[in-house]
Design a protein around this nucleic acid. Structure first.
Lengths: 338, 338
DNA sequence: ATGAAAGCGCTAACAT
DNA sequence: ATGTTAGCGCTTTCAT
């Protein structure tokens, strides 16, 4: 908290003040081997007196920046805030600082710009980037990817149980008597069959389960950009169809909010079952009361950060963490009228 | 998108491949003066061929990192997402990259760590840091502060119209017949009279308006940490008091959500007027339908970023931007039963 | 218009 | 245990 005046103070200033070499100062600030208590004390005194703070740029150029980067596709998505919060907690208490990089447009750019020496390691949520490209990135810098169902060799993954979670939802809806169940999810780009994104897996699972239940001809899928109004519009369309669904399974809670909005706006609140995914704090709100799948977003973020720290400590074999999915049943999943 | 193999490629590699000096390459990538079209072409070809990306660390050490830092106290606060979104938009299309730094504990650390050479400029939302300290920070690096009502000389400010917004709310509630109006806001630390934070100003305004209306003895203020459950608990206490309020003015929408939750959970939805602040996307949701003040969060974030870019371009005299506040009346502000 | 050379502040051998 | 030295990759005078 000391107030620095004028030009910034460097390691040389500290060394001069303490009457030691710059290398000595460097060792002290890094807690490196071979520093006598006496020297440590003098150096620390000088650091305090001068208000010295090491330059990240200089450190990064030579070794590490002590910064961890978390790339996030949508800063406003409720699920992202869980991830950020979890990662923040996990990094607290380590010598590392977490920095978030909101992606604007293609994630390649954001990831590259993180890899350009700003951070020592990267956590990313980029369902669409090419696995080969990621393997290459992982060769240059430690990487942990969230929400990828592939099995990479050069980076770690943290993933939810999208099959289990979706199955739990469907079973629950069947038990409530629903047959005409529609699925509203993200755009084609992130839900293309086999592309391995969480939403693609949820969609596949929905289809599989419907087919298993002999309801293949009732499968109804709508894909929309994740904007509240578009989810509402899609819901309106679904409900206007000749045989409208009695239940709508939303890809995640934010989409579900749009679904609920449209249903409420047309005065039909409570008439159509709605489910979300991610169990964001909104879901538990009495006025929303949304049935959702808890996939432990905070825990996922925390695990990702922890795994990244492990890699920074030297681990090289890939690890994978799969979060559990637990259905939280609430009022939005009403019984089928039929 | 080219795939780099092995060791990272440096400016020297580019220079060698293009058959020019490193200085020449540097000039090309910075669009600096004195490069012949021919040379530019050869250099750019080499850059493309090699997939060269300048090291941020090296650039930062010598000049600028082309990174802008946005410090955020609470990543999950809905208002923050507006700010982030706005800043992101404003920075897009410039040569700068936005990085977010979530504060963990005292904001001084986060701000320092940003100033340690990671970024060329800082946008911060830190109501509590000492103005003198900020002035000093502003001397070392361009700074734009959000939500400070002071008039600094060494940095810019972006602030809302907290007086106008709060007055609008109060007037509205008076018109609905309310007299017993309580205010639920953030903890003492950020609402201490005269400390100049947005919430302190809103609180002061609330008190002033109540007093002006001759209702000084009905003033009722509750302060709570911004956690959903605590807002609920505070609401429960307010409603359990001998003369419970007929309206609750929440410091911002997230708090209002807690208030609404408690009221709904006790089956009294629609019986007590509730207002928020920030007009977050939730407020417009039919199931929430929360009267709130729109203070253009996105615009504030965008303005902050723009002002920071101006400073980077050389402006030194301080600027201030004050956003307008517009009351959005919705269903939650019910008429007083009295 | 182009290149040579001197650092920016730090870390990591390698001496001593 | 401590100090010396040589860069990390880039930008920036200053020559040419």
């Amino acid at each position: 908290m000391s107030i620095t005046k004028g030009r910034s103070v460097t390691i040389s200033d500290v060394a001069r003040t303490a009457g030691v070499s710059r290398a000595a100062v460097s060792k002290v600030i890094r807690n490196a081997y071979g520093v006598s208590p006496a020297m440590r004390e003098r150096v620390e005194a000088a650091i305090g007196e001068l208000g010295y703070r090491p330059s990240v740029a200089a450190r990064a150029l030579r070794g590490s920046s002590y910064r961890l980067g978390l790339e996030i596709p949508h800063v406003s998505a409720r699920f992202m805030t869980q991830i950020m919060e979890g990662a923040k907690q996990a990094v607290a208490g380590t010598p590392y600082q977490l920095v978030l990089a909101p992606a604007h447009g293609p994630e390649y750019d954001t990831l590259e710009s993180l890899a350009d020496g700003l951070v020592d390691g990267i956590i990313a949520i980029s369902p669409l980037v090419d696995p080969a490209w990621l393997e290459d990135l992982g060769r240059r810098i430690p990487v942990v990817m969230l929400g990828r169902h592939d099995h990479p060799t050069g980076y770690d993954t943290v993933v939810g149980d999208d099959i289990g979670g979706t199955r739990a939802i469907m079973t629950h809806l069947f038990e409530l008597g629903h047959r005409r169940i529609a699925h509203l999810t993200e755009p084609e780009a992130v839900t293309r069959p086999g592309c391995g994104t969480p939403h693609a897996v949820r969609l596949e699972t929905y289809r599989t389960v419907m087919t298993e239940a002999g309801l293949a001809d009732l499968i109804q899928v709508a894909r929309r950009e994740d904007v509240p109004d578009l989810a509402r519009a899609a819901t309106a369309e679904l409900l206007a169809s000749p045989e409208p669904p009695t239940a709508i399974v939303a890809g995640h809670d934010d989409i579900a909010m749009g679904v609920l909005a449209e249903i409420a706006a047309t005065g039909r609140h409570g008439e159509i079952a709605v489910t979300g995914y991610d169990n964001t704090d909104l879901a538990a709100h009495p006025l929303i009361d949304l049935t959702s799948v808890d996939q432990q977003g905070m825990e996922m973020g925390a695990q990702a950060a922890t795994m990244l720290l492990e890699r920074l400590q030297g681990r090289t074999e890939p690890r994978r963490y799969r979060a559990t999915a637990t259905l939280r049943i609430r009022g939005s999943s009403v019984r089928s009228p039929g």
